[in-house]
Amino acid sequence: MFPFRVEIKPGAPVYEQVIHAVRKAVLKGQLLPGSRFPSVRQISQELRINPNTAHKIVALLTAEGLLAVQPGLGTVVQKPPRASAENRAALLKVDLEHLVVEAKGLSITLSEITRALEQHWEKIS
């Protein structure tokens, strides 16, 4: 089975969307450190994306330290970096930006949006 889920939507670059999904899966504990990461070919086929894009995804995640190449094993998921509260917050950055832009467009104030957030928070938790 493919170890992480991503629904690719038009608009944002495909590699950003997939990298975001991988980071999320690692931080949520769905992709465990030490487990094998799919190959470029598997990523390309499974997600139906350009092989060059799949290659770029693996290269960027490797540069970031989230993946490492282990001889004989292939690409392996690494322990996520320590400052994880910050990393977790970074995952919401795009959604937050979107929310702020929409709110400003509709002339909703910061306190109104904070209140709305709190209400939703209560509803769900």
Binding site: R41, L47, R48, N50, P51
Partner: peptide, 26 residues
């Protein structure tokens, strides 16, 4: 994709399917 990703093949395609092109093409 199963055949192109293992070798340096070049693909030239025409399409109306913009979403598919956005995923597949670079």
């Amino acid at each position: 994709l199963s055949t192109v990703s293992e070798s340096e093949w070049t693909i030239f395609l025409s399409s109306h399917d913009i979403e598919e092109v956005e995923r597949l093409c670079d």
